[in-house]
Every structure is written in structure tokens, then in C-alpha cells.
Design a protein around this nucleic acid. Structure first.
Lengths: 339, 339
DNA sequence: TGCTGGCACTCCGCGTCGACGAGTGCCAAG
DNA sequence: CTTGGCACTCGTCGACGCGGAGTGCCAGCA
């Protein structure tokens, strides 16, 4: 009973603080929320919440501010994901329709997400390892160099230059392509290494040298490049909530320029389509201790192929952000699946 | 003679202001530079420079600050492009070597440029229209959809999904590809439209429908996508010199998220490899009146294929920046040409 | 004609001071 | 367990004053 009210107080503090960006005091709390008790009572509750580490005072005789832990409790127990309005839904649909290729889908989605959340949005390209090979193409460039193009069923296209040490016979490319296609078409990329590693065995002499180079590059493409690509949008929004983290926009911008960091932000909960919220220090990235990250997987068919999400200040509208992220993920999944 | 000294004073003001970020007064000027005259004389010169609109005072009884026009004169008449140090040269070389494909070259270059200039760097992908067709590939996706892949000699790869209204006969793709290749291989992209527009005439019935779709998409790819892609790096540096434009980082970040704006910043002086400096209001982009842009074309062989450059505060080290931009452009050209 | 030193003036930046207000913690009473 | 009252703490804000940097102007000098 008393316990319940305390949590209501915490919820009220989070909501007010998110709305006003100012430490919230006991008086204004009872004014804005129908708590049915006096400020003095609230003060007692606040003292208890502070003992539990859920809220804190910036300085004596200031109002209270939620801590990372406070937000955690809020997200886990006190809030519900806020569904989008009809208008927002329609906006998503019309914005995402008409994308011409995968790049376009990714770009539109991430822009859209940054616009509706007014935060920094990020989207990971569909994982290569989880998709299947649709086609492989070999194109001669110079006598001893060729281009390997790999097309996945997600629409993703990867290309790599192969530098063979020897001259490439005219008819070899066709034969090699045919052999490759025969073996890997329709195969999941994750299974490609085991299948093609001995492919060069079928060739001899110079042919074999070339085949080995091609196979090696193919393996590199599949393995190394892995889940590499992430697209960002809305970094301008950082400037807006820049005041929140005492003007320390720089480390955040720096972190966001590192693909590896982005992948860490997105990636930990890979392969699950559960909405994940990482608050403040919970994401172990230097310089981002004042930011929260909301991510969710999106699916092609019924398999999760990658993640998307947003980065914002810990002081963000969690229910709304979670709703937007989830909604966009569903739309992206639908569009990819249809395509 | 007197005129000469005035310009020296302007140069000194620009140099000091760039170094200190503070309005510079007559006294400190004579202390830091061997001008051979007294502060009072400098004051007269400063008054004259102010009348000419080359410098200004933030408020009465403050030092002077260069105006956009002042920087203009400095760049045009008072400064020399500063060559890089040996160490910097070597850094460029080792940083850019080992790039595996065009994306990689672009990314490494733009990162490098942002690091050595400590500003925001941008690089435009080699223009499609200026390059030639190396290969075209058609890959069936579903019965009525196919993927068109276009590979240019710059290493650039463009792909587009083609949705034909009708089922695609099995053997058609091969025939179509052969016909396309026969006509356009080695052709400059700018000449492709005139050459393939009647290609569908050679087909009949459903084949013709498919061929028309493919040709239409090819033309779109060549024409519409034009010079579309620009890559950015170093936006984190915006935060550092954010204080310069009174904390108005946001409009700059916003502008930089728009490809169209980037192309305008890079593009005006297209096709020339002359180093271009646009100062403050000279670049007609909203929100970027406190920034300067330094750009130069880079070449594949002996033809300029695209531009690269940096965006920074008007108060930047022009000679150094110009040197870095030019040096990176040369290296990029060399690498692309070798490849 | 141009350079120089001197001088009065302006104005920003900074530190101090005091009033004000918001908010707290504690206590005694209901 | 709740409540009103009360003393206390601090941060914010405007006023004030001072010092310093810089200017413009003027008269004298080469």
C-alpha cells in the first residue's frame, strides 16, 4: 500500500522530470498529480526512494532527479509501451513505401525513426550470415584482377576486388562462376565456408591459383564483413538535448562515429526481437553514460536479421520512444519480407 | 608602402585571431609581430581596414576580428598553401594503402582528412556520368522481378530492383545481358542513354516488356542517381569549435545531413581541380554562414571525377587546411588510378 | 605626410553582496 | 501513518564596483 504510493511517486517524478528537465520538488508533485496526500508525506517517500538509490538531489535543497536505477525501475515496472497514433502510423507507411532498394529502405527507415523520436536513430543492415546467397558474379577488371559480387536474398550486395597473382584465362571466370553458383545458391551464408573451402581442388595450375584467390576473398567477405554496416540519422538532435549532458556532445558524437561502438550498442541482444533498453551506465561505452539506448530486432519472414534503435538522453520519454522503435521495426520487417 | 603594411596588419590579425580565438588589439599585435611601428600607428591602420570592411569590432573598446571579406583577402592575397610535413605525408600513405574496395578508399580518405584537419571532412563518390561501364549483370529474383547491377570502372557498383509486370522467360536474362554488354561496355555513362534507348526494339511480346523495364531502370540509375553519394566524417569536431558559432551547432549538423546541401557545398566548382575556398556567407546555405568550405577535385587518370573537402569555422587555419585537402585529393587520385 | 606618445573614454569581465525563493528535514500533534 | 509548522540550506539573480584592455583623437615631431 505504502509501497505502491512510493512507486507512484517515482513514476510521477520521472514523468515530470522528463517533461520539464528540472529537478522536481514535493510541492509541485502534489499539484500536478492526484496523489491524495500532502507534500510532507511525499517528502518522506522521497527520502525513502533516495535511500533505495532510485532518485537523487543535485544539491541540498534542490528537487529530486531520477537515477539510472530509478529509470530502470520505471521502465521495468511502471510504464507501458505507448502505441503510436493513427496519424503516426500512416506517416510511417507512406514514408517507407516507394523505397527502391535495400539502401533506400535502410535510409528511409532510419531517418523516419530519428524524426518521430527526435533522437539519434541507427539501423543495422540485415546480417549477412543469416541470409542466403542469391547470386554470385565474377567480373574481369584487368588481366589479373577481378571483381567478386555477392548478392544476398535481403537485397544486400557486397563487392570485393580480387587480386590474383597470375593472368586469368578467358573462359575460367564462367566456369568458376558456374561451379560457385551450383554449390552455394540458396545456401545460408553461415554455411558457405564449409561448402566452398575445397572448391579450388577441382582446378589445376593457374586456374587453381585464381580459384583459390576467389574462394579466399569470398570467405573474407562472408566472415569478416560480418554485420559490419550501420546507418545513422538525426545526429543534429544531439545538439538539442546537448544541454542535458553538460554540453559534452563531443564524446557522444565520437562514439557514434565508430562502427564498432554502434554495433556494441545495437548488438548485445542480437537475434532476439525483444525490446531492449539500456540506461546510462548500463551501456558500457565510454562517454555515453548520460545516454540511453532503445533497440529491437527486426525480422525478415520470421527470423530476426538485425537490430535498429535510437540513442537519446537518459532523460527521455521511454514509453513513447519504445513504441516508435517497435513500430518502425515492424514496418521495416514487413517491407523487407514483401520485397 | 603604407598599403603594404596595412595588409601585413590584416594578415597578422587573421593569424592571431585564428590562433587565440580572441579579438586582437593593437598592443598585442606589435608584441607578437615584428611590424616595426607603434601601437598607435597600428590603430590608424586598423581604422582604415575597418572602413574597408575587412575587420570589425564585436563592441566598442574590444579588439578587432576579421570579417568574411577580410578572410577572403587573406586567402586570395596574403597566404600560401602550406605543404604537409614529411610525417604527415607518410601517415597519409600508410593510412590509405590497403583499402580493399571503393567504399573502403572513400571511407579511409574522409576519415583521414577529418583527422588531420580536425574538421568535418566530406568526399563525393566518383561521378557515374564521368566513368565508363565495366559490366552489367541481371539476376533473377522472383518470376517477375530482377536485380540490375551496374559496375563502373571507378569500382563503383549500383544496384536496382526491376519490377516487370510480366513473368520473365528463363533464357531472356542471358540474351538481354549479352545485348546490353555488347552495346555499352566501355561506354561513358553519360553516353549510355543515347545508346540503349532503342534496345528494347529488338525484342517482341513479353520479352519486350521486360527489356523496356530494364532499360528504363538503367537510364534511371545513370541519370537520376547521378552524383548522389557523399560520405562524411569528423562531425564530432563540430562540437569542439561549437563555441565559435555561439553554440549553434544544430543548423550545421542539420545541413550536413542533407545530401543535397553537401552536394551544393562540394559541387559548384565541379570538374575543376582548382582549390576552392568558400567563406561564411559566400556559401549560400542556411545555417552555415559561420562556416567555411575548402574543396578540390580529385582525378582518375587525368580527368576530375569528383570533389572532396572540409567544412570548418570561418576562423580556421586556411593555409594548413588547404594544404591537407589538396594533399589528400592527390593521394586519392593516385590510388584510384592505380587500382 | 606619416609616425608617435599621451590621455580621456568606453565597455567587458569578474568578484562581492544581499535578497529571494524553492526545497528539504525534523518534530510534535492528530 | 499522516500532517502542518518551522528552521535551515543553497542556488539564482540583479546591483554594484573595480580593473583592464582597447579605442579614438590630438598635438608634437621627423
Amino acid at each position: 500500500m505504502v509501497e505502491d504510493r512510493r512507486l507512484s511517486v517515482l513514476r510521477a517524478i520521472v514523468e515530470d522530470y522528463v517533461a520539464t528537465h528540472e529537478p522536481v520538488g514535493s510541492r509541485s508533485l502534489v499539484e500536478r498529480h492526484a496523489l491524495g496526500v500532502s507534500p510532507a508525506t511525499i517528502r518522506n517517500d522521497m527520502a525513502a526512494l533516495e535511500d533505495e538509490g532510485l532518485i537523487a538531489q543535485p544539491h541540498t535543497s534542490a528537487g529530486r532527479v531520477p537515477t539510472d536505477q530509478g529509470y530502470r525501475v520505471f521502465v521495468d515496472r511502471l510504464s507501458q509501451v505507448k502505441p503510436l497514433s493513427g496519424a503516426e502510423r500512416r506517416a510511417i507507411g507512406s514514408f517507407l513505401d516507394g523505397a527502391v532498394d535495400l539502401d533506400d529502405v535502410m535510409q528511409r527507415s532510419v531517418r523516419l525513426l530519428s524524426q518521430i523520436t527526435r533522437q539519434v536513430a541507427m539501423i543495422q543492415y540485415p546480417s549477412l550470415t543469416r541470409s542466403t546467397v542469391r547470386h554470385i558474379e565474377l567480373v574481369g577488371l584487368t588481366p589479373s584482377r577481378l571483381l567478386l559480387v555477392l548478392i544476398a536474398d535481403t537485397g544486400r550486395v557486397e563487392q570485393r576486388v580480387v587480386d590474383t597473382a597470375v593472368a586469368i584465362p578467358d573462359d575460367l571466370l564462367g566456369r568458376l562462376r558456374a561451379r560457385l553458383l551450383e554449390r552455394v545458391t540458396g545456401l545460408r551464408l553461415i554455411d558457405v565456408p564449409g561448402t566452398v573451402s575445397d572448391l579450388a581442388d577441382g582446378f589445376a595450375g593457374n586456374d587453381r591459383v585464381v580459384a583459390e584467390s576467389v574462394v579466399a576473398t569470398l570467405l573474407e567477405t562472408v566472415v569478416e564483413r560480418h554485420e559490419e554496416r550501420v546507418m545513422l540519422a538525426g545526429t543534429a538532435n544531439l545538439a538539442t538535448f546537448g544541454e542535458d549532458f553538460h554540453g559534452a556532445v563531443r564524446p557522444v558524437l565520437e562514439a557514434l562515429e565508430e562502427q564498432i561502438v554502434l554495433l556494441r550498442l545495437l548488438g548485445e541482444s542480437r537475434s532476439s526481437d525483444v525490446l531492449t533498453v539500456r540506461i546510462g551506465h548500463e551501456n558500457q561505452v565510454e562517454g555515453m553514460s548520460a545516454t540511453s539506448v532503445v533497440t529491437v530486432g527486426y525480422s525478415l519472414g520470421d527470423e530476426v536479421v538485425a537490430q535498429l534503435g535510437v540513442v537519446g538522453p537518459t532523460r527521455m520519454d521511454y514509453p513513447g520512444t519504445m513504441g516508435s522503435v517497435r513500430a518502425v521495426a515492424r514496418y521495416v520487417g514487413r517491407i523487407l519480407t514483401e520485397q
